[in-house]
């Protein structure tokens, strides 16, 4: 790791000020940023630890409205009883990120801000039609995820919380890379008042996306059998040592089926 200056922020405003003072990065759980710095793929002049800002952490459930603070860890999301009552799919998703030790540190805000094309949370945010709240504005998930590791966030902007309306039904299934547990392909399906949304992670050449084919099939009937015979195009899907675009295209349908089955219990 190159030399870096560590700061601890007392408030959101303080964090933004400290990041702007140099070539800084916000540091939450650090489960991506620290390894990236260790391998010298990132070399910020400063890191600003936001995990001691109390207002950024925690989960509130009010009726069907769920709000999750940016520095809420995967372990906290996975085990939150109130969230489990209204959206157990998100708890399940969080419980399968990385490993127990990673889940004690990694945060939802960090995951979506990094927007790794194989991360789990972006698919949930997109399928749930979540709103990403920052220190400056509210951004619909549809406009937040911009591509590989790219988001709508500006340099001095940080996610403070995410909020969504719990859908009637939701489910998530992923085909995990056996070593990293990142999704080779993962699908989050949600059936809410605005219909069915299905978001795919791990597969897209340009990051998380909604699958029109899967959504159209599930709009008729929210049942795994509705996806029988559905074909997803391999165009625009990732090919790497783990899987070809065609294999991922098939996985989208298979994972969507499993996600719907999970949603229907």
């Amino acid at each position: 790791m190159y030399s870096v200056n560590y700061h601890r922020a007392a408030s959101v405003a303080d964090a933004v000020k400290k990041v702007k003072a140099g070539d800084g990065k916000f540091l939450a759980g650090g489960m991506t940023l620290i390894p990236t710095m260790k391998s010298r793929l990132a070399a910020p002049s400063d890191v600003v630890d936001i995990t001691r800002i109390a207002s950024l952490s925690g989960i509130t459930v009010s009726g069907k409205t769920v709000t999750i603070g940016a520095t809420t860890t995967h372990a906290e999301v996975a085990t939150n009883a109130k969230l489990a009552k209204v959206c157990p799919a998100l708890c399940s998703l969080a419980s399968h990120i990385g490993d127990p030790h990673v889940r004690h540190k990694g945060t939802i805000g960090g995951s979506i801000s990094n927007n790794d094309p194989a991360a789990d949370y972006p698919s949930a945010m997109l399928a749930l039609g979540a709103t990403i709240v920052t220190n400056k504005r509210q951004i619909p998930a549809d406009k937040f995820f911009k591509g590989l590791f790219e988001t709508a966030l500006k340099e001095d902007e940080m996610v403070t919380e995410v909020t969504f309306t719990a859908p009637a039904k939701a489910g998530y299934a992923k085909f995990p890379n056996p070593a990293s547990r990142y999704a080779v392909t993962g699908v989050f399906v949600a059936k809410g008042k605005d219909g069915v949304r299905a978001a795919v992670t791990g597969a897209g050449d340009n990051g998380v996306f909604r699958s029109k084919e899967v959504e159209a099939a599930l709009a008729k009937k929210f049942d795994a059998a509705s996806l029988d015979g559905v074909k997803v195009s391999a165009k625009g899907l990732m090919g790497d040592i783990h899987a070809t675009p065609e294999y991922r295209a098939n996985l989208v349908v298979v994972m969507a089926k499993r996600a719907v089955a999970a949603a229907n219990g």
Binding site: Y6, I34, D49, H101, V102
Partner: peptide, 18 residues
């Protein structure tokens, strides 16, 4: 792996300052 404030974490992926 060590425990920080009662939780298991990977100490190779955390700054001492954190």
């Amino acid at each position: 792996v060590v425990h920080v404030d009662g939780k298991a974490v990977k100490s190779c992926t955390m700054l001492a300052a954190q």
